[in-house]
Amino acid sequence: GKMTGIVKWFNADKGFAFITPDDGSKDVFVHFSAIQNDGYKSLDEGQKVSFTIESGAKGPAAGNVTSL
Rank of each mutant, 00 (worst) to 15 (best):
D13T: 09
M3A: 05
K2M: 11
K41F: 14
D23Q: 03
K41V: 11
S33A: 08
G63S: 11
S50G: 04
F10P: 01
W9V: 03
G56S: 10
L68F: 01
F32Y: 11
V65A: 05
K14D: 11
G5S: 02
F10S: 12
A62N: 10
N64T: 08
E45Y: 12
V65T: 14
Q36D: 11
I19D: 00
H31C: 15
N64G: 07
D13W: 05
Q36G: 08
K2V: 12
S42Q: 10
K58I: 13
D13I: 07
S50L: 08
A61G: 12
G56H: 12
I19R: 00
D23C: 05
Q36N: 11
S33I: 04
V7G: 01
T52F: 13
M3V: 08
F10K: 07
A62I: 08
D13V: 08
G24C: 05
A12P: 15
T4G: 04
W9A: 04
K58T: 13
K41R: 10
K41C: 15
V65G: 14
E54T: 07
G63Q: 09
S55D: 13
G24S: 03
G46H: 03
G63D: 13
I6T: 13
I53D: 03
G59N: 11
S33N: 07
A34R: 08
W9G: 03
D22N: 04
V7Y: 00
T4D: 02
K14C: 15
E45N: 10
S33W: 06
F51V: 02
A62P: 10
V7P: 00
S25Y: 03
F51S: 00
D27H: 04
F10H: 03
L68A: 15
S33G: 07
K48C: 12
S50C: 14
F10Q: 03
F10R: 06
K8D: 01
K2D: 04
P21M: 05
F10G: 02
F29I: 12
T66P: 15
S33R: 04
F16I: 14
W9S: 06
T66M: 02
I19H: 00
V7N: 00
E54H: 07
V28N: 00
S67R: 04
A57M: 09
W9I: 04
A34E: 11
V49H: 01
F32D: 02
I35T: 03
W9R: 03
A17Q: 00
V30W: 15
K58N: 13
K8V: 07
V30E: 01
T20R: 07
D27I: 05
Y40F: 13
G59S: 08
I53M: 10
E45S: 12
Q36W: 09
G39I: 08
N64D: 13
M3S: 05
D27W: 04
G24P: 01
G5R: 00
E45P: 14
G15D: 04
T52K: 05
T4K: 03
A61W: 06
A57C: 15
D44H: 15
G46M: 03
A61L: 09
V49D: 01
T20L: 05
K58D: 13
S42I: 09
V30D: 01
A12Q: 11
V30Q: 00
F18Q: 11
K26W: 05
A34L: 09
Q47A: 09
S42Y: 12
G39F: 08
V49Y: 01
D38A: 13
F10A: 15
S25N: 05
N11Y: 06
S42G: 10
G1A: 11
D22R: 01
G46K: 03
I53K: 05
L43F: 12
A34Y: 09
L43P: 03
G5E: 00
I6R: 08
I6A: 03
W9T: 03
E54P: 07
K8I: 10
V65S: 06
G56Q: 10
N64I: 13
G39H: 13
Q36K: 05
S67E: 15
A12T: 11
Y40N: 13
G24Q: 03
V28W: 04
F29Q: 05
F16W: 08
K26L: 09
A12R: 11
G63T: 14
S67D: 15
A12C: 15
K41Y: 10
K2F: 13
